[in-house]
Structure formats: C-alpha cells, structure tokens
Design a binder for these strands. Structure first.
Lengths: 270, 270
DNA sequence: ATATCTTAATGAACACCGTTCTCCCGGTGA
DNA sequence: TCACCGGGAGAACGGTGTTCATTAAGATAT
C-alpha cells in the first residue's frame, strides 16, 4: 500500500503461489510490552463495555491493538483468562480478624463488600458463579471466612457449610440483579447504541402485570409484588443475609433463646 | 401447550418482559411430526451426552437427523430452546397445599425434589441459574411456594425474600456439585470417550492437599477439610437447607424460643 | 562486527458456532 | 387439476477459540 504511484508501471499483484512479502509496512510504534496483567485489564474493559457475550479473545486483542494469537503467550486459554479475572476480584480484599463477639457484623461486612466488588464489573457474578475459590491465591480468604464462623462457636458441620452458603448467596443475588438489569436494558434500548437501564418503567410494567393476575389464583404473589420488584436492592440483599445469619446463630451453643442482640436488622447499608 | 399440567392452576397471560415467541405450532402433522416437543427432547439428549458446551443447534439437528434450519421453524432461537428446557424442568412439579404446621417439611420436600430434578440432567443447574421463574408457565409454582411461607406466618418482607433465597440455594448447590463432578471427570477420564467420575480419587487428592497446607496458616481449613469434601452431598445439602429454615423460623411471631421441634438436623445422619 | 539464540508477535488457517436466506418438495383447499 | 403454502434442505455470512509456521527484534557470544 506504500507504492501506488501513478507514473511508474505498477507491479502486478503477486501470483497466488508465491508468498506475499509484507515489505515491512505498519510495524512497531514502540509499544509497551504485552503482559498477563495488561491482558486481564483489557478483558475487564471489554467486559464492562460489551458484557460477557461480547468478551471474546478477538475483542480483547483489538482492545490492545494486538493479534489474537499474541494473547495466548500470556493466558493459555479463555477459561484461563476468566479464572484470572475471577481471582483478581479478590485482590486487596481485606479479611477481618475473627472476633467472636462481632462475628455477625463481620459476615455482614464481608458479604456487602463482596457484593460491591461483584457489582463493580458487568456480568461479574456470572463469572464468579462458574468458579470455585479453592485455588492457591484464594484459599486464604476461605480460611479467614471459616475462621470467623468457627471462632464464633458454630459447630464444625455448620461452619463448613456456612462458607459455601453465603458465597452462593452473594453470587446468586448479584447474578439475579444483573439479569433484571439486562432485561430492563433490552426492554428500553432497542438496538440503540446506548441501552439505558430504564428500570423504573420496567418495574412499573411488572407491577401492572402482577396486579393483572387473577386474584383468586395469585393472592400471595399480588400481595408481595411490591416487595419483590422493590427498587431497593440493598435492602433486599440485607434481608436475605439476615435470614442466613439468624439461621447460623441458632446453632450457637448459648443461643437457647432466639437471635441475640446483634441479629437485628442491619443499620442500613450505604 | 396442549397438555398443560392438570393439577396446577391455570397459566396467566405472558408477562410483558418475556420475549414474545412465534408459537406457530397448530397444524396437524400428517407425516413425520418434527415438533417443538421433539426438538426439546433431542436437546436434552444432546445435553446429557455432551454437556452444555456441546449443546449446539447443529448437534440437536443431527440428533434428529434433520437440517439445522428446520429447528428454527419450531424454537425461534437457541435462547428460546434453553428457556423451553428450563420450563420443562418444572413439568409435573407438584406443589404442596400450604399447611402452616408442616411448612418446614414442605419446604424441605420442595427443595429436595427441586435438587433431584436439577440433577436429572447434566449441567441443568447452569441453565436454571440463567433464568428467572417469572414466566407465565412458572408463576403458579412461585405462587405456591410463597403461599407456604406466607401462610406459615412469616412477615411479608421475609416471605418475599425466602422464595429467592431457597431457589438460589438449590441452583447454586447443584451447580457447584456439577463443577466438582466435571473436575473429577476431567481428572480421571483424559480424552477417553467415557469419563468416569472418579470421585473418590479426587476427594483423596483434595484431602491430601488440605492436609499439606501449613497448619499455622490454615488451621480451620484443615480442621474442616473432611466436612468440605464430604462424599455425602445429600447431607451437605440438608445442612445448608436447615440453616435457611432456622433463619426463616426465627421470624415467626411465636418463635421467641429458638428453633421449634421440626427444625432439627435432617434424619439422615453421618 | 558478526553470527547465533531467544522471545514475542504475527497472519493465516481450522473447525466449529448461531442465524438467515433461497430454493424446492409434497400435501391441501378450491 | 392446480395454485398455494408450510416445512425441510442446503448454502452462506459473520463470528468464535485455538494452533501453526513464520518473522521481527533484542540479547548474547565469538
């Protein structure tokens, strides 16, 4: 493409059997070296912009201005890349020093910050759901969480399940949040470049739909409609969390009489 | 659609947020009746044989000995097909008549049979996790579940969350089960046509791994290792379920004194 | 300075994927 | 009898993850 001069007889196009020599066009503007970290970073950029469906190796490569195959020198496979993204979610995740008197508040804090991290990247809950934290980098976090439960005095069988239980709850809750968000986006932004959430309108439609159900067949759904499509996801998250915490607390040896003083509603998350 | 579940309440009109399906199945088949039902059936066959990654329109078509494009006369899209599979999971799912005195046992039964259904098809939990039961066919089930919670006397805010909570728990638990199963299969059956689970060997390896962790850094993980990789998934499922049930029970107006007589450990003991 | 080795990036290729389009066959209603 | 039309066939389009041989560039050794 360099020599398209008009005056000189143009070279014929190369015959198919002779290998075309690129003649060193468009090379090397002294770019920063590609690294695993940069690949993961670009993957997050693509994920946030296009969602998990749009997260392809080619898109990541395009984000970096690099060939697709160059990525495989740093990540091994797409699954590998997703696992790196999953692991990176927990970078700098501070785990509490177990304090038996504050264990419920500590779990609350863990769960809320976990949800916050999941919400910080689009479709991140879907990625998290597909992975298990039993890798070398993540085991310390699991240990710290189990420490909270066990030093709180929970029986071993309960403590062992508690970790899975709240982790699954966090992932599942945020995943469902994302599904509603996507649905609302598809609802409002029809093919437009920018799909605005349009959540209030959709919540209204759902309310109307629930209200239109035959009252004799769906009394409870109608009664709870307002709470189910509640616009305050934070509150819903805290309620589910509290249910689990109360269930765990009931296994404390000294909890012969219901929830302790710390098991009330959370003081409204920010 | 011709044979709706007889025992369950009638399906309401489709909600506005669920995508409209062509639903052009009305012609009486004269010859080979390639029907929506047969497509879904073939999809399940492929799913069970090849897993979710191997479930492609082309594979389904091959299963039926038919061209790929023929499928689109009956299902509209792959997402549509997945939703049909998700919906079919609940076919013939009998929901209990709410009985305030047996509500915990009713929830236990619901959860266990839900898990059983999820386990009846490979990777089904992943499909279930990606969907929401607020479609016309599934709303009656949601209603019935909420009925159990509400007639049990749970406050509305709690009952509204309880449905999501245990549904998420069931899906999440089975999804994790499947992940371990896959990992074990990849572990033992290396490329072979038949990947045997080989679970005991992998459980041993995990035990060894946990045991090899530095005791001063991972005391709790080491202490709980045996319970975490327990070979009895049924028991683990029941324990997590019991935690949730106890948490819910704590919101009952008359539960000033901890768990009631029905909230003990599941009958199956270690 | 020259030759060699190493590393990372390239572009083409492969085998798939979901979806759509056109074409054609065969049974049905008039 | 004949036009019609729905359902299946087959090819095609643009996209996917991954692999391969080749090349450009830098470092090292002679």
């Amino acid at each position: 493409m360099t020599d398209a001069a008009a005056g000189t007889p143009a070279s014929p196009p190369p015959s198919p059997w002779e290998r075309e020599r690129p003649a060193r066009v468009h090379v090397a503007p002294a770019r920063t070296p590609l690294s695993r970290e940069r690949v993961v970073e670009a993957a997050f950029a693509v994920l946030d912009r296009q969602g998990l469906e749009g997260l392809s190796m080619r898109q990541v490569a395009a984000e970096l201005g690099v060939a697709v195959s160059a990525l495989y020198a740093h990540v091994g496979s797409k699954d590998d890349l997703l696992e790196l993204m999953y692991t990176r979610l927990y970078d700098g995740f501070e785990m509490p020093e177990p304090d038996p008197r504050r264990w419920q508040e500590q779990v609350r804090e863990y769960a809320r910050s976990g949800r916050r991290r999941l919400l910080s990247h689009r479709d991140m809950a879907r990625i998290s759901m597909a992975h298990v934290p039993f890798t070398a980098e993540l085991l310390p976090h699991v240990e710290a969480l189990l420490a909270v439960f066990r030093t709180a005095g929970l029986p071993d069988r309960i403590a062992a399940e508690a970790g899975d239980l709240i982790s699954t709850y966090i992932d599942g809750f945020v995943l469902e949040e994302g599904m509603w968000r996507d649905r609302a986006a598809r609802h409002g932004g029809d093919g437009s470049s920018l799909a605005r959430p349009d959540w209030p309108e959709m919540a209204d439609e759902m309310q109307n739909y629930f209200a239109s159900l035959p009252p004799e067949d769906f009394p409870h759904l109608r009664a709870l409609a307002g709470l189910i499509v509640s616009d305050s996801s934070d509150e819903r998250f805290d309620i589910g969390l509290e249910i689990i915490l109360r269930g765990l607390a009931s296994y404390l040896p000294d909890s012969a009489a219901g929830p302790d003083q710390d098991a009330g509603r959370a003081p409204d998350a920010t």
